[in-house]
Structures are given as C-alpha cells and as structure tokens.
C-alpha cells in the first residue's frame, strides 16, 4: 500500500515529503499523510491537477465554485504563499498547521492580522474594517444604515487603536485579541486533532510507513 501511495504522490506537482512537513508543523507524519487524502479530494474537485484552485476552495466552503467571498479570497491568498494562483500541498499543510489546536496562539493572532490587513500595508485600517463589515452584511443579507455601521466601526476602532494613530498595528491587534479571545476562535479546527480518524482508510497504509 505504501508503494502505491508513493508512486502517485511523486507525480503531483508541489508535493512535499510528509516527514519534512511534519517537522515544520504540529502534525505527525501520519496526520500529514491523512491531510494528503483531503488535499487530493479538494484539488481534483474542479480541475484534476493536484493543486487547489480558488474555485475548488469556494466549492468546499460554499458548495458552489462560483461563489465569491472576501474572506475566502483572503484565506486563499494567505494559503497561496508563492502567490502563483494555486495552493500546493506543502502550502496547504503549513497553513493548516496554524489552525491546529496545538499551534502557538501567537501564530493564530498573526494569521488573523494578515487576514484583516486587506491591502497588506502592515496595518488594519479603518476603511478596511468598514469594508469587511459591509461584506459581512452583504453576505448575510442584513441591512444596517450607514450611520449605524459608522458608529460600530468607530467604537471598535477606537478600542483597538490604542495609540490613536488611525490604524491598528500588530501589537495593538495582539492586545485587542487578548481582551477578546473569541476573535481567534475560527483559528482552531478541532478536526485537525483527529484527521487520521476522519480518513480511516488511509491509516492502514500510514501505519506501514510510520514503522519503517
């Protein structure tokens, strides 16, 4: 079974050895191999080329490959470390590692900062926060007057922007998250602790490789 698996993986562009990825992430070798099963499913759902395209992420998240979403776009961009328009296996595992229950909280906080820093200026700016609030209202079919949105954004921003310079820097973000820990709730995926149980058919073959 191990040989069958190895033969297929070597043909996949961007494939990296599970031992290397396990050393750099909170995952064990078996868990990385189980993640490869998930990766194969995701990366073959629209274009069967062993790489995750944006449409494939959208399909997995929304059951609709054409549904655009500001945050799904940002997640895709952050996973696509090489910025070549696709998510490779190594990028997938390293990025998901931040979502592991055992990953450092600092990494989770940093990831959310980058997620919300829409224009990648190194700061979360007021206009970005307003844009995100408006995107959520649109996504949720909720209507709020512009005055109410402005008030919510102002209040949140003044609480987070401790230095009062009109932008939230990484230190201010860290402080704000420490006061509001639910902000990184999405950054922990309990599924990742049981990833080998989620894909039990694969555990049989990984046990052979782990014992080698």
């Amino acid at each position: 079974m191990g040989c069958y698996h190895s033969k297929r993986t070597k043909e996949t562009p961007g494939y990296e050895e599970p031992t290397v990825l396990a050393a750099e992430t909170p995952f064990t070798v078996s868990e990385v191999e189980a993640l490869y099963e998930l990766f194969k499913k995701l990366s073959s759902s629209v274009i069967d080329d062993g790489l995750i395209h944006k449409e494939e992420l959208q399909l997995a998240l929304f059951r609709n490959k054409n549904r655009r979403n500001l945050f799904a776009d940002r997640i895709f961009d952050l996973f696509d470390v090489k910025r070549n328009g696709v998510i490779e296996f190594g990028e997938f595992v390293r990025s998901l590692g931040v979502f592991h229950p055992n990953a450092p909280v600092e990494d989770k906080i940093h990831f959310t900062f980058r997620l919300y820093d829409l224009r990648q200026t190194g700061f979360i700016e007021r206009e970005e926060l307003k844009e995100m609030v408006l995107a959520i209202l649109h996504e949720s079919d909720l209507l709020l007057s512009d005055d109410v949105v402005e008030t919510i954004v102002d209040k949140t921003f003044s609480d987070a922007d401790l230095k009062g310079d009109g932008k939230i820097d990484p230190e201010e973000w860290k402080e704000f998250v420490s006061k509001n820990p639910s902000l990184i709730k999405n950054m922990t995926l309990p599924y990742l602790k049981d990833i080998t149980l989620a894909f039990p058919s694969f555990v049989l073959s990984t046990e052979v490789e782990d014992s080698e």
Binding site: A60, F62, I136
Partner: peptide, 25 residues
C-alpha cells in the same frame, strides 16, 4: 453589550470558517 465589529466578522463570515473543508469526504 459592546458590539465588536471584528467579533461580528469572525462569527458571521462563512469564508473564514474552514471546518467545512473537512466535510468533503
């Protein structure tokens, strides 16, 4: 209770909830 815009974003955005990736089995 104070309405925190970031909390609103993180709790409401389906694009920021990756748990559905694991339901593709």
């Amino acid at each position: 209770r104070f309405f925190n815009a970031f909390e609103f974003i993180s709790s409401m955005s389906s694009g920021f909830d990756l748990s559905s990736l694991f339901e593709t089995k």
